[in-house]
Design a protein around this nucleic acid. Structure first.
Length: 469
RNA sequence: UCCCUGAUAGCUCAAUUGGUAGAGCGAGCGGCUGUUAACCGCUAGGUUCUAGGUUCGAGUCCUAGUCGGGGAGCCA
């Protein structure tokens, strides 16, 4: 007897005539009064289920098999045969179907064998991975995760585990979740009546990380090519299809590099990821193309084939102003110095260029303190990668490596040099030009699959007012 | 946080000017068929989100709240 996953069986790891065991969950059961039942069984190993044929001669046919409903767990053993029916190449002619777990009250089971809305499935996030869509999302997510690490590994990067609990806010990247062991009802207070965090676990106020960038820069200044890939937390009260309070972010950092090198890296990296999905998950991508977003495969192929358009912020503004002059209507006015709104980004990448666009060199006023000041004195070496259909997918910059310029920026923004003393040390002891970016992992999955809501591409989404499961 | 919108059977939705709740899917039972979104028949399944209010009468109208969805802002 061989125990194989359905993926292995369908891929031909077992020969016709071999005895195999299939372990999984029922997708559907169809009965034939000719005296047999067809069980579609999936085990998550691949998109396709396998068909198990159970004849009425089986000992438990009347008592159990005829009562199997969607998502009952079974172990079926039998001979692998070429299917007599259409729709599948192989099937298992069962000698034994062992029922491991029935479904209680099948008439009230929330993931019955019918179409369900994603809204409903979100309320049963612990059961939704059993559906076609969420199984496919989980496999694509895994594929992309592995591709991230493989790309960096192949390109000489080191994966740095930056801390989850931090003390420094990467320049207001977002509101932070406090980490504390103090008694919320009765915290220690100082002489001014303020909560005394010196009595807290770490002896100071701490929060969940909003970005691993500052930490990974330290390792970049020793190992040249590094990245982080881990969970990130933002306590923003944002309720959109593109935001989560807990999400995963990929942040590479490269030394001896400028903004152009950074954009090169972003382009090469994204193309690698999408190529991996197309090559490794054709089954799931075919499903997404058929049921979720018919353009998704074509979009990835186009993305891989096209070179990114690079555009200075100043030129982007000019292009937007020209569009306004030609009658394009925007809700937000366009002028040099504004931060680009979603509608502006969409126009640039979808209407004007029709390909991914890298907008570079933004006004320093709208960007973070650590971004390198350009020679013009009014822009910084920042870039956003905009993709058709999703908007901003990457934000990055060349970092300010000059201590005097960095200090001036800290002062301008009103940040304390003491708070950033270790970060400033990196500029004091062997500083070099370097750059990096942040890629929202879930947004990458949205782009690849065509899924509409970010809450449906992470197993257990955390959003304002919702941390169930 | 702001704007819009919604909440009725396990799920997706109906229900006329306010008149006493219905279908499809799913589930159960039966029929039929190497079936595959199977098909046909029958059956069960409801404190209409919560709390107030108007009314002879509220799923429907009013007030407040809770939760969901979409959009915006913020960003990844």
């Amino acid at each position: 007897m061989t125990s194989l996953t359905i993926k292995e069986i369908l891929a031909g790891r077992a020969g016709v005539g071999d005895e195999v065991t299939v372990e999984g969950w029922i997708r559907t059961r169809r009965d034939s009064k000719a005296g047999l039942s067809f069980l579609q069984i999936h085990d998550g190993s691949c998109f396709d289920p396998i068909q198990v044929v159970a004849e009425s001669s089986l000992a438990n046919y009347q008592e159990q098999i005829l009562h199997l409903t969607t998502h009952c767990a079974v172990r079926a053993t039998g001979k692998l045969v070429e299917s007599l029916g259409k729709g599948q190449r192989f099937e298992v002619h069962a000698d034994r179907v062992e029922v491991l777990g029935m479904v209680e009250n099948p008439d009230h089971y929330p993931v019955s064998a019918k179409r369900h809305s994603f809204e409903h499935l979100r309320t049963v996030a612990h059961l939704r991975p059993r559906t076609n869509t969420f199984g496919a999302v989980a496999r694509v997510r895994d594929c992309l995760s592995m591709a991230v690490h493989r790309y960096f590994h192949e390109h000489g990067f080191f994966w740095i585990h930056t801390p989850i609990i931090t003390t420094s806010d990467a320049e207001g990247a977002g509101a932070m979740f406090r980490v504390s062991t103090l008694d919320l009802a009765n915290p220690p207070r100082d002489e001014h009546g303020k909560v005394d965090f010196s009595a807290d676990f770490f002896g100071r106020a701490t929060s969940l990380t909003v970005s691993g960038q500052l930490n990974v820069e330290a390792y970049c200044m020793a190992m040249s090519r590094v990245y982080t890939f881990g969970p990130t937390f933002r306590a923003e009260n944002s309720n959109t299809t593109r935001h989560l309070a807990e999400f995963w972010m990929i942040e590479p950092e490269i030394a001896f590099a400028d903004l152009s090198d950074d954009a090169d890296l972003a382009e090469s990296f994204l193309k690698y990821l999408f190529k991996a999905v197309l090559e490794e998950r054709p089954d799931d991508m075919a499903f997404f193309a058929q049921h979720i977003d018919k353009d998704c495969i074509h979009r990835l192929e186009t993305f891989i084939a096209a070179s990114f358009e690079r555009m200075d912020y100043t030129d982007a503004i000019k292009a937007l102003e020209a569009a306004v002059a030609k009658g394009v209507k925007f809700d937000f006015p366009v002028s040099w110095g504004i931060d680009l709104q979603s509608e502006h980004e969409r126009y640039l990448t979808e209407t004007l260029v029709g390909r991914p666009v890298v907008v570079m060199n933004y006004p320093k006023e709208i960007k973070a303190f650590y971004m390198r000041l350009n020679d013009d004195g009014r822009t910084v070496a920042a870039m956003d990668v905009l993709a058709p259909g999703i908007g901003e997918i990457i934000g990055g910059s060349q970092r300010e490596e000059r201590l005097d310029v960095l200090d001036a920026r800290l002062d301008e923004v009103g940040l304390s040099k003491d708070e950033y003393s270790w970060y400033r040390d990196l500029r004091r002891f062997g500083t070099v030009p370097h750059a990096g970016f942040g890629l929202g992992f879930e947004r990458t999955i949205i782009y690849a699959t065509g899924m509409a809501n970010i809450r449906d591409v992470i197993p257990f989404p955390r959003t304002p007012g919702n941390a169930e499961f």
